[in-house]
């Protein structure tokens, strides 16, 4: 394993210190485990708070700033944060109008955020939760913990964040977040496993000529394994799974993200985007907005995820609203 580390144990605190030094718009409280906006927001604004295991950067800390999150709680690598962090964050950023928790659907995240919501309620802070579960590689059934939350988290945080910035109330901000989640579906493919600093070796063995189909963002193996194939074929099977979803049944305007998992060059992500665009055109869908880059990563995993969100005029206008964070910035 070759990584830029001082010690595996200090990777999170060293990275947080680096974020603080690089981005004066962020206030990083290492003791509390909270990244929040350096500038205080106005009284009455609904606060948007997210968090999850580290190793997915820029998610979530990189999305803290005007027009998106008020605070993010980074856990240990691939481990959900503890309730104390979310409570401290909620207390720091709430302005009397409540807090929306954006939670990716993993047992650990769900349980820790649930405990935090109870603690916040004890302190008189109203909390609503938006659960993100967009990954179609997992079937939502009694046989699983439900679909995972992946790429759609970026869409939820951007769009709900824009509405919160405009002064909407708690129910409206949570409501639009849920609507974005329901309209979004994702699928990911890995070319290599990733290596956590603590483990020091790849999470699974993958021969040079094989790929994992339907992976999540925590280095766990996917649904199945197959031989490496041309990008066109890999993308076609991913898009088949996404477009088979009732939520995306009728063609229309879509926001599309082709996301790198951390170890794939941007050039290859554009190769993937090209195939995605061709398949969507065949279906009669119009790509209204797009993102190509590393937004929800899985440490050093090579691979890509595709997220498609069926968008109407309201969602698009919120998408276009100004945002000023380390990882997304436009409309200023």
């Amino acid at each position: 394993m070759k990584k830029f580390l001082n010690t595996p144990e200090s990777v999170l605190s060293d990275a947080l210190a680096g974020m603080a030094a690089a981005h004066p718009g962020l206030h990083v409280d290492q003791n509390a485990g909270v990244i929040r906006r350096a500038e205080e927001t106005r009284v009455g604004k609904v606060a948007l708070l997210s968090g999850g295991g580290s190793g997915h950067e820029p998610l979530h800390g990189g999305f803290v700033g005007t027009g998106m999150l008020d605070a993010a709680c980074p856990g240990e690598v691939f481990t959900s944060p503890v309730p104390d962090q979310m409570l401290a964050a909620a207390k720091a950023v709430e302005r009397g109008s409540g807090v929306v928790f954006v939670v990716k659907n993993y047992t650990g995240d769900v349980l820790n955020f649930q405990m935090a919501a109870e603690l916040a309620a004890d302190e008189g802070i109203e909390v609503q939760t938006v659960l993100v579960d967009d990954d179609v590689a997992v079937q939502d059934s009694t046989w699983t913990a439900g679909r995972r939350g992946t790429g759609a988290t970026v869409f939820v945080e951007k769009i709900a964040g824009a509405l919160a910035e405009q002064g909407a109330d708690l129910a409206a901000v949570a409501g639009i977040g849920r609507r974005v989640n329901e309209a979004s579906r994702s699928f990911a493919v890995a070319l290599t496993a990733c290596t956590t600093p603590a483990n020091g070796k790849p999470g699974f063995d993958l021969p040079d000529d094989e790929i994992e189909i339907g992976v999540g963002i925590h280095g766990e193996p996917g649904r199945h394994r197959q031989k490496l194939a041309p990008a066109r074929e890999i993308v076609a099977s991913a898009m088949d799974a996404i477009l088979a979803e009732p939520a995306l049944a009728d063609a229309g305007q879509v926001i599309v993200m082709v996301n790198g998992l951390g170890g794939t060059p941007l050039m290859e992500l554009y190769v993937v985007f090209h195939e995605v665009a061709a398949l969507l055109a065949d279906k009669g869908a119009a790509i209204a907005r797009s993102l190509v880059g590393n937004y929800v990563t899985s440490l050093d995993m090579a691979g890509a995820s595709i997220t498609v969100c069926r968008a109407d005029a309201e969602l698009l206008s919120l998408w276009d609203a100004p945002v000023n964070t380390p990882a997304l910035r436009w409309g200023l």
Partner: peptide
């Protein structure tokens, strides 16, 4: 444990 583990195992 709740305040220090995180993950699924912390709350459980």
């Amino acid at each position: 444990l709740i305040s220090s583990i995180g993950g699924a195992s912390g709350p459980l």
